[in-house]
Design a protein around this nucleic acid. Sequence first.
DNA 1: CCAATTTTGTACTGACTATTCCAAAACCTG
DNA 2: CAGGTTTTGGAATAGTCAGTACAAAATTGG
Lengths: 200, 200
Amino acid sequence: MARPLSFRRETAVAAATRTFLRRGLHATSAEDLCRATGLGRSSLYNSFGSKDGLFAECLGDYLGATRERGEAFLSDADLPVLDRIAALLRFIAAEEAERAAAGEPRGCLAVNTVAELADDPEHAESMRRIDEDTDARLRLLTDALRAGQAAGEVTAAVSAEGLAAFVNAAIAGLRITSQGGTAADRLDDIVATALRALAP
Amino acid sequence: MARPLSFRRETAVAAATRTFLRRGLHATSAEDLCRATGLGRSSLYNSFGSKDGLFAECLGDYLGATRERGEAFLSDADLPVLDRIAALLRFIAAEEAERAAAGEPRGCLAVNTVAELADDPEHAESMRRIDEDTDARLRLLTDALRAGQAAGEVTAAVSAEGLAAFVNAAIAGLRITSQGGTAADRLDDIVATALRALAP
DNA sequence: CCAATTTTGTACTGACTATTCCAAAACCTG
DNA sequence: CAGGTTTTGGAATAGTCAGTACAAAATTGG
């Protein structure tokens, strides 16, 4: 019925996400996004409405993918809870090491967005989505950890909610210190130490 | 010999630091800084040269103060190493809780700057200073933890360097999750859990 | 091949950005 | 109080920003 788009939306979003991860929202210009995605200004605004619109889509996709992956790791009912959490943390450390080796941007879009936009009233909606996502992740972790406590596989020295908050903070710490340049084997040390905290 | 400045440099830097912490470097305009400090444009540029110059001074002061405070906590030779690290982590959690209660900006300027500027070649100098500071902090932690291992007060399951990297990541995680809105008692849980990881 | 519809490239706009310029005011030393 | 020096306020400047207008090109259904 009409002319079709000359690009795949999802690859454009992926390229934009890399740029936002590398530079942040404020430091990324519309021209940067055109360069990164290969789109012209008109195509970009025609498809995504605005820079903030594109960012919202990037963030939404990123949160969705991250959440799915987290659920995949944590819901593997055959493994002890600690092993599932260990697998998740090791995956994150390995992903960061891989990106470092490939010269790709390190760190986490959600973490960086909190750092950049937490107090920006113009982007409260983005923060709301991150909050929502964090809550879901915390619930998942809390449930898993509580089950682990009941099975005696996880320490009961701290509440399941508290342990979940710790795991969440450890992931954030892992990602930023990686972005700050921590070496791959140190990331493994961080994971190993964090796991010690959860053991009975 | 000439007209003196009508403001105290250190209070202007403190006000600018709060603004940079709240909004980040890119989202803070020269006008924002004038409003926050009460200075006129001319005074600001006359005293600090440029927005980046003022930021560099804010970051330098912040890193210096943070480092001094860390040293004060860690060098208290009368206390067991774990107690010193516990005091440091509890102080950070308490500071975050206090700022949350007072409506002041939460989080850490160094952490946020890594998130914002890690891949920005125009601000490599700021990153270099943060790297330098991080290295110093890691050395301090490593030495303390190694002594603790020798005394049997700290686990030897991970190298002292690895444990130091963990503590550093835990602090970063604490500060960002706080910025993301974590409640005060959850911050205490995170601290308690992190400390468990270091015990023998 | 035509007509309707959508995408795309280019040039443009108004608002905002950091920074500078200049003249007037304020201050300290003598 | 005068001379020299510096700060200060306010206007101006050059550049970049996100977003738009519009006409030409591309595509599909008939």
